[in-house]
Amino acid sequence: MQFKPYARSLAIALSLAFVAGCSSTGGTQDGSMDGSRDGVSTSGAANGQVGGVGVGGTGQNGQQAGIPGVRTIYFDYDSERIRGEFEPVLNAHAQYLRNNPSARVMLQGHTDERGTREYNLGLGERRAKAVERFLSVQGVSPSQLEVVSYGEERPAVSGYNEDAYAQNRRVVFAY
């Protein structure tokens, strides 16, 4: 599900239509756009276009075939310990990254929605860093790895129940 360019563009197009549909007054732009700001903006129309181009176009097609298919691992409550069942997943990513020294991956750490948002950013980072350490021990170059924490800001599943929490406590490999 992560970062399929066309899916994302479609989503953006849909959200654009949504914005256009609910905003009869539209927006006015009283400043120049800075091109470096993908996906964010101030005028609904400009925004969608910038986001669609900038975010979707990270072109990894040449490497796509070899990237391990499982790109999300899950964690226990209040824990950054890597569960045994996910070690084979991490080993597969480690092998791929060792074999493809030019490949880079962003390790995106997430928490469930309980607790305070800023503190959860810290907890999400701990999970992503635990994965980073694991991969480093497996011989992956630090230059191939980047850690980013989204805390509870990008839940995979919405809902306030244990099932949703379990699916949200995760680290995603974003190549």
């Binding site: 609910c22 905003s23 927006g27 006015t28 009283d30 120049s32 756009m33 700001r37 903006s41 101030t42």
Partner: peptide
């Protein structure tokens, strides 16, 4: 400094 522009939503009731 990044120039940003303000969305001027005029009294959107919803």
């Amino acid at each position: 400094w990044l120039a940003a522009c303000l969305l001027l939503f005029v009294q959107q009731a919803q």
